[in-house]
Amino acid sequence: MEHIRPTLTRIFPEVGDDLVSNRRRPILHFLEDTSPGRHDTLIAACDSHRYALLGCIGYHDNCTDNFHAARV
């Protein structure tokens, strides 16, 4: 996430942006956003471990799993 901010020159990615690796290579194109919220690049992508620390019991959809599922 920390490499996306200087590449985009803003905190919030928008539809049409390319999200990049730590080598600044595009790895994901932000094609559509159907979520109700905004996405920031200030913290790492959420994952099952974060939700467990927040008290979530059972599985909760998260950015890390979504990313891995999309890499098919």
Rank of each mutant, 00 (worst) to 15 (best):
M1K: 05
M1G: 12
E2Y: 07
E2I: 07
H3W: 13
I4E: 04
I4H: 01
I4M: 04
I4N: 09
P6L: 06
L8T: 06
L8M: 13
L8E: 06
T9P: 00
T9I: 15
T9Y: 12
R10G: 12
F12P: 00
F12V: 03
E14P: 01
D17H: 07
D18G: 00
L19N: 01
L19E: 01
L19A: 03
L19G: 01
V20K: 01
V20L: 05
N22Q: 13
R23V: 01
R23H: 03
R24T: 09
R25C: 04
R25N: 07
P26R: 07
P26N: 10
I27D: 00
I27V: 14
L28W: 01
L28R: 01
H29L: 11
H29K: 15
F30R: 01
F30E: 02
F30T: 02
E32Y: 05
D33Y: 06
T34P: 00
S35D: 02
S35F: 00
P36S: 10
P36H: 08
R38S: 09
R38G: 03
R38M: 08
R38H: 08
H39G: 02
D40Q: 04
T41R: 03
L42Y: 11
I43P: 01
I43G: 09
A44S: 11
A45N: 06
A45R: 00
A45Y: 01
A45H: 03
C46D: 11
C46L: 12
C46R: 09
C46S: 15
C46V: 07
S48D: 11
S48F: 04
H49T: 09
Y51F: 15
A52W: 09
L54H: 14
G55C: 10
C56G: 08
G58T: 11
G58R: 10
G58N: 12
Y59S: 14
Y59C: 06
H60M: 13
H60C: 11
D61M: 08
D61H: 10
D61W: 07
D61I: 06
N62D: 15
N62M: 13
N62T: 15
N62I: 12
C63W: 00
C63Q: 08
T64N: 08
T64S: 13
T64R: 12
D65V: 10
F67H: 04
H68R: 15
H68A: 13
A69W: 12
A69P: 04
A69D: 15
A70T: 06
V72A: 14
